[in-house]
Amino acid sequence: MRGTALGISVVLGAKWLGVALGVLLYGGTITKAAEIEKIDLPGVAVPLISLRGPIEQGDGEKFSKLTDGLDRASVILKSPGGLVKEALQIGATIRMSGFSTMVAADQECFSACGLIWVSGVRRYMSDTSLIGFHAAYREENGEYRESGVANAEIGSYLTHLGLRIEAIRYFTAAGPDDFLLLTPDRARMLGIETYRVDGGNITTPSANPTVDVYADRFVSYSLLQSRCAPFLQPDPIAVKRAHEATFAEGSQLVGGDKWIELWTPLLDQVKSQLNEKGALLLCVETEAHLRGQGQETGVEGPSFPCADAATPTELSLCQTPELWAKDRAMNSIYMWIRNNVEKSVRKRLLAVQRLWLKDRNNCGGDASCLNAIYDQRLNELRAIDLPS
């Protein structure tokens, strides 16, 4: 397929034979443009956009006009590929509009189509979806040669989507006469979140995390075990167990050396965040981050036994998990001041703390009020760093 992207003749389509289920065969010029249509099904709240066939000149604008005004949609893809420029325009519209993308079981989405699929804020695929990639290329005197300019544009676009370099290389590694298929497991290894469809069942990214998620969790648990322990007093056995399990999962997914390469740079980011925010705030945020993913944090309950809770404030603290780490951190700071600060300074600081407790208790059982007052006080105390 011929077309113009960035001033050069670029071909981005799968040239292969023998794939069933209506795959369009490549070889020579294909003139039929993609069929792009909006499908409204009874009982389906989310509009469906169907894109079938080769991606040709003008399809980017056609897609943009068709979807103008939609605040959500699912884009169903079946295409052998096409023009890079048009595919990137469609992909950008999908990403900016917050649309999902899907390639159904046993259906093909090759080359430029794959760039559209990966643009979805939610990407659906099955184990038998045929999503394939190869480098962009141009035709010169009957021969196909890779287009460095078009591949650079693809790399820049994928970088803006948040893909890391390994994924970008995978997308452009195969030559014009070949392609690399993307499976759900390969996507996990490359850090590409997908929703895995198996009949009527869907496995979400949270249930099937990418290796990048494991790397992030591993570093988060490393922080909980070290700098955060004095503030949050987490259960050391629970944190150690989760830390080791996360390491094993990530290592199994990509192998030891690659696994280390993934999480090592994150340690440098943590050091930078410690300097910027301080250990207190970063530890509270890290615990909330892990808890938000449904992960074990070793923080079970506030700083006091909930069996002894009597006031509306204490009862609310016990019933609101997002407050547990904040209350533990505040209590740890209070205890440290009481036991380590010089007497005259300690007296003044504890007086301020008692005034804060009065304001806190005025919230009663209002969890949003408690969250706000804890956040304000913790931010005021952010410079305090308890010894490990």
Rank of each mutant, 00 (worst) to 15 (best):
H134A: 07
H134M: 07
H134T: 09
H134F: 05
H134N: 06
H134Q: 08
A135H: 02
A135Y: 01
A136S: 12
A136F: 09
Y137V: 00
Y137T: 00
Y137I: 00
Y137R: 01
R138Y: 12
R138V: 09
R138C: 08
R138L: 10
R138D: 12
R138G: 14
E139D: 15
E139T: 01
E140P: 06
E140L: 13
E140T: 12
E140I: 14
E140N: 09
N141P: 09
N141F: 11
N141Y: 11
N141I: 07
G142M: 11
G142P: 12
E143N: 01
E143S: 01
E143K: 00
E143G: 00
Y144E: 07
Y144K: 11
Y144H: 14
Y144G: 13
R145P: 08
R145V: 10
R145E: 15
R145S: 12
E146D: 14
E146N: 14
E146L: 15
S147H: 01
S147C: 02
S147A: 02
S147I: 00
G148Y: 01
G148T: 02
G148P: 04
G148F: 01
V149F: 04
A150D: 10
A150K: 10
A150H: 10
N151R: 11
A152V: 06
A152H: 06
A152N: 07
A152F: 03
E153Q: 07
E153R: 08
I154G: 09
I154N: 06
I154M: 10
I154E: 07
I154V: 13
I154L: 13
G155R: 08
G155H: 07
G155F: 03
G155L: 07
S156M: 11
S156N: 13
S156F: 12
Y157L: 02
Y157H: 03
Y157I: 01
L158D: 15
L158T: 15
T159K: 14
T159H: 12
T159Q: 13
T159L: 12
T159Y: 11
H160F: 02
H160Q: 05
H160P: 01
H160S: 04
L161T: 07
L161W: 02
G162C: 08
G162Q: 11
G162H: 10
G162L: 10
G162A: 10
G162E: 11
G162N: 10
G162T: 05
G162K: 08
L163T: 05
L163W: 10
L163N: 04
R164A: 09
R164G: 09
R164K: 13
R164S: 11
R164C: 09
I165G: 11
I165T: 14
I165D: 13
E166F: 10
E166C: 08
A167D: 05
A167T: 04
A167W: 06
